[in-house]
Amino acid sequence: MITITAVITAKPGKEGVMADALLSVADHVRAAEPDTIDFFVAQDRDDPCRFTTYERFTDEAAMDRHNGSAAVADFFAIAKPILSGEVVLVTADELSAKRG
């Protein structure tokens, strides 16, 4: 299993736009990406401008399909002008998971 963790920070006042853009990607993943096993979006309790995503893929091809999707391109078109700093990405091989 391959995972990506992303930390994304929106400019103040743009957190609602960022949340909507991330949730749009989540909707796409749910409807059209069976090999994206999980796609979580979270909003920081202390800083509502900071979001974290955690993504799990069956393999590298699934990750590449997701990252090359129109939904991800649309997200970045919306997100780039409202980012506060760089997106922090960590791509990793999952070692352990607890399910249900």
Rank of each mutant, 00 (worst) to 15 (best):
residue 71 A to F: 06
residue 72 V to P: 01
residue 32 A to I: 06
residue 24 S to P: 00
residue 15 E to L: 09
residue 29 V to M: 07
residue 52 T to L: 12
residue 56 R to V: 00
residue 12 P to D: 00
residue 74 D to I: 03
residue 67 N to Y: 11
residue 59 D to I: 00
residue 1 M to C: 07
residue 49 C to Q: 14
residue 94 E to Q: 13
residue 32 A to Y: 15
residue 86 E to M: 14
residue 44 D to C: 06
residue 50 R to C: 01
residue 4 I to R: 14
residue 25 V to P: 02
residue 89 L to H: 14
residue 86 E to K: 15
residue 80 K to Q: 12
residue 96 S to N: 11
residue 7 V to S: 12
residue 3 T to F: 01
residue 100 G to D: 05
residue 56 R to I: 02
residue 36 T to W: 06
residue 25 V to L: 08
residue 46 D to T: 06
residue 54 Y to D: 08
residue 49 C to A: 15
residue 40 F to H: 15
residue 58 T to D: 07
residue 76 F to E: 09
residue 63 M to A: 11
residue 45 R to I: 02
residue 60 E to Y: 13
residue 54 Y to C: 08
residue 83 L to R: 01
residue 37 I to N: 08
residue 60 E to W: 14
residue 46 D to G: 07
residue 18 M to E: 08
residue 33 E to I: 04
residue 38 D to F: 05
residue 70 A to F: 06
residue 39 F to M: 03
residue 39 F to A: 03
residue 36 T to I: 02
residue 78 I to P: 09
residue 68 G to C: 05
residue 9 T to Y: 10
residue 41 V to F: 03
residue 48 P to T: 07
residue 4 I to T: 06
residue 21 A to D: 13
residue 22 L to S: 12
residue 17 V to A: 15
residue 10 A to C: 11
residue 25 V to Q: 10
residue 83 L to M: 03
residue 70 A to V: 06
residue 30 R to P: 00
residue 38 D to G: 08
residue 50 R to H: 01
